[in-house]
């Protein structure tokens, strides 16, 4: 079996790897946006609660949270499908990190523009939607790329809950062919290519929506 054949064999799992990465990244963006928005416009007690949320989910290892959700929750009568378990663990943790990224990016929005929007008669929610979020997201691009990369790199944990991603393919292939070194080398190259694709893709998107004078 040539190295190329190994690569082709493993490529079968790429779809799942990308699916897990995208699903968890989107979960992260939704959770992170929700947390950052609520702590920007919510009452102080809620801010404290959200601060505790981000601290806890940034302190617990992904693997531990994944096992809590996938293997632990059935003890409480709650059975969670593998992909959802990944989203509730890796995705929510990414959300806690992204909430911090978004919080910092929100702080880069000029306070005088927010005041001007208030003086115009826009509601708090309109200001958030029309002024703060569009600017904040642009400031947050580098931080988001970092976090999406991290999600990609933790995505192989999906094999532990039975998702047939690249890692899972590699493990079964390695068990039958006993050529672990080449196989895992190939896996490394595949992840690196996905990583490059991801980073290039996000920057291309950023470039298309770039506005003079507004970069992160």
């Amino acid at each position: 079996m040539s190295f190329l054949q190994i690569l082709l064999q493993l490529a079968g799992g790429v779809g799942y790897t990308i699916m897990v990465t995208v699903a968890c990244s989107l979960t992260g963006v939704v959770v992170g946006l929700g947390v950052a928005m609520l702590s920007r416009i919510g009452p102080p007690w809620l801010r404290g609660l959200l601060g505790a949320f981000t601290f806890i989910f940034r302190a617990v290892p992904v693997l531990v949270l994944l096992f809590i959700v996938f293997f632990g929750l059935p003890n409480a009568g709650l059975r969670v499908p593998p992909l959802v378990a990944m989203m509730l663990s890796l995705g929510v943790i990414a959300g806690a990190y992204l909430a911090e990224v978004f919080r910092g990016a929100f702080d880069s929005v000029d306070a005088s523009e927010v005041l001007a929007a208030e003086a115009m008669g826009l509601s708090r929610f309109q200001i958030l939607r029309l002024i703060e979020i569009p600017q904040m997201l642009r400031f947050a691009v580098p931080g988001m790329i970092n976090e999406f990369t991290t999600v990609l790199k933790y995505s192989p944990f999906a094999y532990t809950v039975g998702i047939p991603d690249v890692m899972k393919e590699a493990m079964s292939l390695s068990a039958t062919t006993l050529r672990g070194v080449e196989i895992y080398l190939a896996v490394g190259i595949i992840y690196f290519l996905i990583y490059k694709l991801l980073v290039t893709g996000v920057w291309a998107l950023e470039k298309r929506t770039r506005i003079p004078g507004l970069t992160g």
Partner: peptide, 12 residues
């Protein structure tokens, strides 16, 4: 090394 998962290296 920033672009590839650590677990792959460990398994290798």
């Amino acid at each position: 090394f920033i672009g590839t998962p650590l677990i792959v290296l460990l398994f290798l």
